[in-house]
Nucleic acid binder design. Structure first.
Lengths: 238, 238
DNA sequence: GAAATAAGTTAGTACGTACTAACTTATGGT
DNA sequence: ACCATAAGTTAGTACGTACTAACTTATTTC
């Protein structure tokens, strides 16, 4: 982990697994803190011990910096890899939905595999065929080929006060069931929702979507992001 | 969704490498004889010793039958895997050329990676978007989803007698340079060529393509296949 | 602040996939 | 038939990536 040594920038073909770790760490780090071993392990569905080992390897490759017993952060090269993967993932999802008739609830897994096999050229061609979109079907921003991306943290429905009206811009793409649940209730990117009521103690939130009223759980509400105020008072760092 | 079991039941997710071996063995076997260790090694660019080891593993999985010191043949399940890969490869190549503007000389490598990551559903959707083509951009027949394919052996230009006229139907897709060379001379699937002259001892063959005359080497001529008589008198097995 | 608990690490193991070196078997020339 | 060479195999090694078990460090709770 000590700096020094050259660490070769030339990107010598990472394994699928290494790439998955980097993407996972990136996503966890978006929460603000370094990625904890346990969180990575849970996210990837592997044992914590395996994560410890892999983090050392990634550190040896100069892709993460690890503070023992504290967690891992991406280095600049590691971050670049993660952003490329994110770009690939989101363009592939967009392409599958727009050009091949996939449902938005059904593309995550396919993209998860393809993102490791697609060349930069393929991704760029797909992006061009789509008109270089800036968000994927779930509203997630697509990093540019150069690795720039809007990382502002969005408020979720769970953060909205009663009476607030907001435009849905994004939701988690992990769970097809969840996405179908949302779609069936009209909760899709672009829709407008109003908070009609909310129960205390993380109770259900009642939304007005179109002219229908929906009660959704707090966990679901926290996974749907809306336009407007950032979730935390810290200034959004782009 | 898709109905009943046809071949081996479980299909427990082969590695990329195992899949590559199977495809490679299939291709070598098309020559008629079992796939020799050395041939596989050369084709895949690995050491012969590594092939010996892998063949034992594939045999243990019931995908190939190996006769010691003699070579390997695919079993029915192994053949099914290979044909699926071939289908994937060729549909992906077709899709890249037709829908994403790739050159026909430039798709092999990309397909080589994607074929291991694409789901059956993706392949079927791509095939449908293309109108379920029966051959890829290099004229290679595309196996059906059920694993049927035309395996007739074609005559190559090298097999044609002087004066013969034939329609080009297929060529090897391995080498982009080679494909560009052929295209530049009008030798593409569908073109008609006539053998104007041929030198003995595997010397160059002079072809008439359109109104131009071209002299091509024997090796190149042997990698371009034409309609008509099978290369060998054995009955074509489909 | 010490014990209980959670989080993280190391050690040892296993498997896939590659390698080289050394040995064995098959083949072809005389 | 015999030997030289080619082809193939085994043995031993290495690395990536996972695992469990046992240990260490950090955090929480009284």
């Amino acid at each position: 982990m000590s700096a020094g040594r050259r660490t070769a920038p030339p990107e010598k073909a990472l394994t699928r697994q290494a790439e998955d770790y980097l993407k996972c760490i990136y996503e966890i780090e978006q929460g603000g803190a370094p990625a904890a071993t346990t969180d990575i392990a849970e996210q990837l569905g592997i044992a914590a011990a395996s994560v410890s080992g892999m983090l050392q390897r990634l550190a040896r490759l100069g892709l993460v910096s690890v503070e023992r017993y504290r967690g891992a952060r991406l280095t600049a090269p590691g971050r670049a890899v993660a952003l490329q993967l994110l770009r690939r993932h989101r363009i592939i999802e967009s392409f599958l939905v727009t050009k091949l008739g996939y449902g938005w609830d059904d593309v995550h897994e396919e993209a998860e595999r393809l993102e490791h096999a697609a060349s930069a050229e393929l991704i760029d061609r797909m992006a061009e065929a789509l008109g270089n979109p800036t968000t994927d079907p779930h509203g997630a921003p697509i990093p540019t080929a150069a690795g720039r991306v809007d990382e502002r943290r969005l408020a979720s429905i769970a953060d909205l006060p009663i009476g607030a009206r907001a435009r849905v811009v994004r939701m988690s793409d992990r769970d097809p069931e969840f996405l179908r649940y949302l779609a069936k209730r009209g909760i899709v990117p672009g829709a407008t929702v109003r908070v009609a009521a909310r129960e205390p103690f993380d109770g259900p939130i009642t939304l007005t979507v179109g002219r229908a009223k929906q009660a959704v759980g707090a966990a679901a509400a926290a996974a749907v992001y809306v336009d407007g105020a950032a979730r935390e008072p810290r200034t959004g760092k782009v």
